[in-house]
């Protein structure tokens, strides 16, 4: 995949998604702000709820509890018109280094992913790397199928939104 030059506006707004291996997903993007600001938007529940679930996805966050420190826990409850009842995601923060790194373990099942997010500041900009590691290839594929299954129409909306933007 060709890489846009660092610092150009194309590189700034580009979200790079790579399937690193059978069971790993990596997402990268550079934000035009220092690391402590991006970390704040990621670790404060009232800010996190404003971006984690894109409006176009049609789901809403019913509640969001996040105690972002090493050993702390999180619990996110989502609702969707197509769900009979709300769906909860929960887990533990394995390692938190403010403004640098957050590692959490998803604990709804034995097949949960371990996720590492790093914040690297360079010249006032911050590169965020989201790295999700599933125990098996099947777990990763199931996670996607699960989220995609209930959402075909939402993905269509998302398509329309993105087509309008590009």
């Amino acid at each position: 995949m060709p890489q846009a030059k660092e610092g150009s506006s194309a590189a700034m707004n580009r979200t790079v998604v790579e399937r690193k291996s059978d069971h790993e997903l990596v997402v990268m993007r550079t934000f035009d702000a220092p690391a402590h600001i991006v970390f704040e938007a990621w670790s404060k529940p009232d800010l996190f709820t404003r971006w984690w679930v894109p409006k176009s996805v049609g789901m809403s966050l019913v509640s969001c509890n996040m105690d972002v420190r090493t050993g702390g826990t999180y619990r996110l409850v989502f609702s969707h018109p197509a769900f009979d009842q709300p769906m909860a995601f929960f887990g533990t923060y394995r390692e938190v280094i403010p403004n640098e790194r957050i590692v959490w373990m998803n604990e709804e099942s034995d097949e949960g992913a371990e996720t590492t997010v790093t914040f690297e500041e360079l010249a006032g900009k911050t590169r965020v790397t989201f790295h999700e590691r599933y125990p098996t290839k099947a777990a990763l594929e199931e996670a996607l199928a699960g989220s995609a299954e209930g959402l075909p129409e939402q993905f269509a909306q998302l398509d329309a939104l993105l087509a309008g933007n590009s």
Binding site: V38, W51, W52
Partner: peptide, 8 residues
Amino acid sequence: WTARFDAL
């Protein structure tokens, strides 16, 4: 992720 990170 593009939608998510655009919002962020």
